[in-house]
């Protein structure tokens, strides 16, 4: 898993500046501590889509979603991957501990872990991309509950369909927050690549580009992690 240094800095409020040596050292220490406690879990399933207007059904499941934005995201897809990924409880435990005993370290570790879960998803996606290319499918970017009009209340149903708790220990609380904290669920559209290469015109973008797209679509204008904004930490 390649954890991007510039992502970590961005989460910490840097905008293309270099960290001072002490902070750089702290980041390096946190990264190595983090890597020792991550127990990554990734599960996914593949489903044919049943589309009807803004309604999307995942064939063979009881999951039905109403979302303009997801429908748009999957407009050229006839199937989708449903993915759930987590770094496990280790990072949560360390971050919570440092948040009490060494807050600066807690903050940096938190930023490293946020970058790490992104990296884990990107890695999983790249593997799937290579595998599915052989079947003539291209992947869209990841689209998660909470983006656009895709309800965050879907988390629970997604986890049930994937049996994510028994398989990777991923749960959701009453407020639809994923636990362990450093976790992601996402839809990835599968677009049949045609001879003309039409689908190739919009290949799955790289992690950074895609996140920008998510930020643009996200209604949360004040998010501290929002890309392209000027909000500081």
């Amino acid at each position: 898993m390649e954890i991007a240094q510039d992502e970590i800095l961005r989460y910490l409020g840097y905008r293309n500046q270099n960290p001072d040596p002490a902070t750089a050292k702290l980041i390096a220490e946190c990264l190595s501590e983090l890597k020792a406690v991550i127990r990554a879990g990734v599960v996914y399933q593949r489903y044919p889509l049943e589309k009807q207007g803004d309604r999307i059904g995942l064939s063979g499941t009881n999951l039905t979603i109403y979302s303009k934005d997801l429908s748009h995201h999957l407009r050229q897809a006839d199937q989708c991957l449903l993915l759930a990924a987590t770094l496990g409880l280790g990072p949560d435990q360390r971050i919570a501990t440092y948040a009490r005993l060494d807050l600066a370290r807690g903050i940096v570790l938190d930023a490293c872990a946020t970058a790490a879960i992104e990296a884990l998803c990107a890695e999983a996606q790249n593997k799937l991309k290579a595998k599915l290319a052989k079947e003539g499918y291209a992947l869209t970017g990841r689209y998660s509950p909470g983006y656009g009009d895709l309800a965050i209340t879907l988390q629970k149903a997604i986890l049930e369909v994937l049996r994510a708790y028994p398989r990777i220990g991923l749960t959701v609380n009453e407020e639809h927050i994923l636990l362990p904290r450093k976790s992601v669920t996402a839809f990835i559209g599968l677009e049949k690549r045609e001879e003309s290469g039409r689908a190739q015109e919009r290949p799955a973008p790289a992690a950074g580009v895609k996140a920008d797209d998510h930020c643009r679509r996200c209604p949360d204008q004040t998010c501290r992690y929002r890309k392209g904004g000027d909000r500081n930490g």
Binding site: G13, R15, P19, D20, A22, T23, L26, L103, N232, G233
Partner: peptide
Amino acid sequence: EKGELFLPQLIQ
């Protein structure tokens, strides 16, 4: 606030 120092430094 001026962007000369960053969150980890503020906290330290």
